[in-house]
Design a binder for these strands. Structure first.
Lengths: 234, 234
DNA sequence: GATATTTTAGTACATTATACTTTATAATGA
DNA sequence: TCATTATAAAGTATAATGTACTAAAATATC
């Protein structure tokens, strides 16, 4: 650590490589999954890595992340939120480079499968994620912690499900994220008590004999409630 | 947004100025305060600004922030946590520059007053913070939101109080942060129910006739409880 | 048509939060 | 000296919420 104050003008300040890496979560058949790909540049070319990019002069960090997500999945308007900056001096053997990690939630059936394969990307179940380059496995651990924290306080889990979903589906998502078994009856009761789900007339019969009613999350109502101080806690 | 993937080697990637700005909270006489200073470099030289610095090649972002805090307050081992990155392309009129903001909590009587004045820094009550350069006022708003969120879920408020503090003091801190009036009796009851405060034999008589008992936060016990899944909620 | 499986409704009890009453302590001033 | 006053601290009663569990409804499959 330097003890002297820095009064140099902008022009004489050190410039650094800035990257962004995306921890992309998906939920498929009751399993939480992550999107990773084979790195295309040296060093560590060909190794598994989070998808990411260097940040260009003319774009913000979230813009860079959205660019990457569009490239790899063909999707726009994805839930995306900053995780944190990774800035250890020796974190990247290629050069001094900081990465501002972002996590994204996508509806796993909406993305463009061809586009994903074209870029050498692949979905891994959370438990099967291989060794990744640099500090990317740490990023995943941190992102998962954040996801757990965030899903209990904000209704963002819906971003991982289809627009129309059943209550058992939502429950299995929460169980996958938090690695717990929840009581069906209490989960349902609490969820419905918010009065934020719109019950549809359709049923989903893909997973059971009886079939479960489909619901839709009432974003408009939630926005209003949130503004007036309402707190979602699941 | 570019639609093409970027396969260029590190050496051809764009480098960017990286700064860190510190939102420094203090608590004094029942009032939440922020440390700001007169900026020393152009553009906007002489304007009020958060304390901060560019990040050097050979230091991490938190290291840069700790360097700045040491310069301005003479303090080490301060509570410091990343807020978020500010990366809008035009956020700084001087150059393309991203800032990774950090918020810090300090015990306002411990810092070196001379050092603060030497650097043209000054404490402002939250409500009296002047117009700051760039997006620094936004950073404060965001940091305050984070502080509110964080203090209800983690026992970090203590970082703003002396080692020995009274329950009414802690309450007034929470009231200042959350801008609410809390019920004395229920606040005390809930707080003590965690059994995380060590009651001392001393009393603080500076604010009342009767005098209130001093307490010390039991960090060791909290660490253990936290590891075994305990959740602090105030 | 009985059986198995899953969804859905409901209920009883324990825990926690909230609103409020009372007592304790000690400086102050008549 | 003794009531007055301000604040701290302990307690209590009720409402709200969470937790554990019983039971019924729906329907594909045997």
């Amino acid at each position: 650590m330097k003890a002297l104050e820095n009064h140099l003008p902008y022009i004489e300040q050190p410039k650094i490589l800035v990257a962004t890496d995306c921890i992309v979560f998906g939920f498929d058949e009751g399993i939480l999954k992550l999107l990773v790909f084979r790195r295309r540049i040296d060093p560590l070319k060909g190794e598994w890595s989070l998808i990411g990019s260097f940040v260009n002069e003319e774009e913000s960090v979230p813009d860079a992340a959205r660019r990457v997500l569009l490239q790899f999945t063909g999707l726009e308007n994805i839930f995306l939120e900053e995780l944190k900056a990774y800035s250890d001096v020796d974190r990247d053997s290629g050069a001094r480079c900081i990465s501002i990690a972002q996590y994204a939630l996508i509806r796993i059936n909406d993305y463009d499968r061809e586009q994903v394969e074209l870029h050498g990307a692949k979905w891994f179940a959370l438990d099967d994620v291989p060794q990744l380059v640099l500090d990317h496995n740490t990023m995943i651990t941190d992102a998962l912690d954040r996801l757990r924290q965030k899903t209990t306080h904000k209704p963002i889990g819906f971003e991982l499900l289809p627009e129309k979903f059943t209550i058992p589906q939502l429950q299995s998502l929460y169980e996958a994220i938090h690695r717990t078994k929840l009581d069906d009856r209490n989960f349902r009761k609490k969820l419905l008590s918010f009065d934020l789900l719109i019950k549809l007339d359709e049923k989903d019969k893909s997973t059971s004999k009886k079939g479960a009613f489909l619901y839709r999350f009432n974003y408009d109502k939630y926005k209003k409630l949130e503004e007036s101080g309402f707190n979602f806690v699941l």
